[in-house]
Design a binder for these strands. Structure first.
Lengths: 145, 145
DNA sequence: CTCAATGCAAACGCTTTGCAGCGAC
DNA sequence: GTCGCTGCAAAGCGTTTGCATTGAG
């Protein structure tokens, strides 16, 4: 069983747990999401799913994504100036760095930043429900291209 | 000259520098923005401006906001689940904490987080153009209400 | 007097929704 | 066979834009 099969299984069981039917459209989307290494937007997911289920509608894509997000198995990111992007939430928590020139999305994790965020909230009597940290960046001149 | 007059002056001169006309609508918006202590959205700014210029249109509000943002004198924030919110950028840099229950927006600044962000980008050969850090929080049980 | 700014209404881009027919269970 | 899901088309929401008119300079 591959890593991707495992992820697909995970997404599928989340839907089953929610008591919904696994249709051809949903099965296609689940595997597309499981094998995505990037951060595709809804239309891109539709495009990829069409290889398996030609004619799948964008409404279905959005409805499924909304359901999966509610189940907590995928994440929806609203970066600046683009439609929402999605990724399965199996991997550990991370934040994002977006190259403003290319649109490329990279991931990073920094334990110390996380800790400081919690301290900031704590100091004011709050606890963090979730956060959003996005670095909009540009390759440095002379940097490795 | 009050602090608010100073801010209004600052916003006005940014527009003048851009070579645009200071109309009644714009003058009203500039002072509304200057005296705002919160993070109002476009319709709210329109509402406040209407006290001075009844009938000011939302298009005008948006057009002026876009211009001021381009001049770098106001900031546009796209928090989750709400229309864009605006604030004059006179004060020093800060990030935001949003109470998910009340919608209240609070500001905070943390030098160490800023520094770590720069380091993360630097380590990968990038420099930060701008960032977005938002903490979606909830008052802790037993915390000062 | 001129040309930029306004208000209106229409278009926009992304996302959600109502509905009649379809298909997973 | 039931009833949840689908595709379609239409609506929603915040924001932008085209255009004829108005008003700042």
């Amino acid at each position: 069983m591959t890593e991707i099969d495992r992820r697909t299984e995970n997404l599928t069981s989340a839907l089953r747990r929610a008591g919904v039917r696994i249709t051809r459209q949903r099965a296609a989307l689940l595997s597309v999401l499981a094998e995505a290494e990037d951060h595709p937007e809804a239309v891109e997911l539709q495009r990829r799913a069409e290889d398996v289920v030609p004619g799948i509608s964008l409404s279905t894509v959005y409805r499924t994504l909304t359901e999966l997000e509610a189940q907590g198995v995928i994440l929806r990111h609203q970066f600046e100036g683009t439609p929402a992007r999605f990724e399965h939430s199996e991997t550990h928590h991370h934040d994002h760095m977006i190259d403003v020139d290319t649109g490329e999305v990279m991931e990073f994790a920094n334990e110390r930043i996380e800790k400081l965020q919690a301290e900031v909230a704590e100091a004011l009597g709050y606890e963090i429900v979730h956060h959003r940290l996005e670095l909009y960046v540009r390759k440095k001149a002379g940097g490795a291209e």
